[in-house]
Simulated scan of single mutants.
Amino acid sequence: MSSGPPGGHPLVDTSQPLVVTLPAAPTREEVARLCADLAAAPPGDVRCLVDAEAGGLGAVDALARLALTARRHGHRLTFDGAGPDLTALLRLTGLDEVL
């Protein structure tokens, strides 16, 4: 005689999202490492913590690269912590939808 599946709730994935941190002045090597981490991770939720001091076109480039890498590998990426200067620059460049 075999038994049926256990009662109760079905299996639910309660894992936490992958968290990456974008420093205030990201270097190409740091951005490449973050993108490689995203590419290697299984598809899922990713939270990017943006340093509040991050700004300039380097940060915009880094965010765009992270967003593109995440999309290519099936991640749902969210950004938290961008300061008003970076947010304004993203709006000016038309990339404000990234945040």
Rank of each mutant, 00 (worst) to 15 (best):
G81A: 01
H9S: 15
L68P: 01
L90G: 07
A88I: 02
L99T: 08
L92Q: 15
T69F: 09
A62T: 03
G44N: 14
G7A: 03
L63C: 14
E53I: 01
R47G: 02
A52G: 01
C48G: 04
R47V: 15
L68M: 06
L38T: 12
A40T: 09
P43N: 00
D51N: 09
A41I: 00
R28I: 03
L49F: 01
Q16E: 13
V20Y: 05
L18P: 03
L18A: 06
L68Y: 00
E97Q: 11
T87Q: 14
L95N: 01
A88L: 15
R47M: 09
V46L: 10
V20P: 04
G74W: 10
A67H: 11
V31M: 05
G56I: 13
A24E: 07
P17S: 10
R65L: 11
V50R: 02
G8L: 13
S15K: 11
T14Q: 07
S15A: 15
R33W: 05
E53F: 00
G4F: 15
A59D: 06
D13F: 09
L66S: 05
L89V: 12
G56F: 11
D61F: 13
G94I: 12
L34C: 00
R72D: 10
A54N: 08
A41R: 00
L57E: 13
A54W: 03
A39W: 08
A64H: 04
V50E: 03
L90D: 06
G83H: 00
L38I: 11
V46G: 07
E29S: 15
D61K: 14
P42W: 02
H9C: 06
A32C: 07
L22N: 02
R71L: 10
E29T: 14
R28A: 02
T78D: 12
D37C: 09
P42S: 07
H73I: 14
L95P: 03
L38E: 06
R76P: 03
D61C: 08
G44F: 08
A52K: 12
L63Q: 01
L66F: 11
H73W: 11
A88S: 14
V20E: 07
T14Y: 06
P10Q: 00
T93A: 04
P5V: 08
G44L: 12
V12A: 06
D96I: 09
V46M: 06
T21V: 14
E30S: 05
V50L: 04
R72G: 05
E53Q: 06
P26K: 03
L68V: 14
A62L: 05
G58H: 04
L89S: 09
A62P: 03
V12L: 11
L22M: 06
M1K: 09
L18G: 00
D51W: 10
L49I: 10
P10T: 01
L11V: 10
A88Y: 08
G7S: 01
H75G: 15
R76G: 04
A32F: 09
H75A: 15
S2N: 10
L18Y: 01
H9D: 10
D13H: 14
S15C: 10
A25I: 00
T87V: 15
G58S: 09
D51F: 04
P84S: 08
A52D: 13
A40G: 13
A24F: 02
P84T: 08
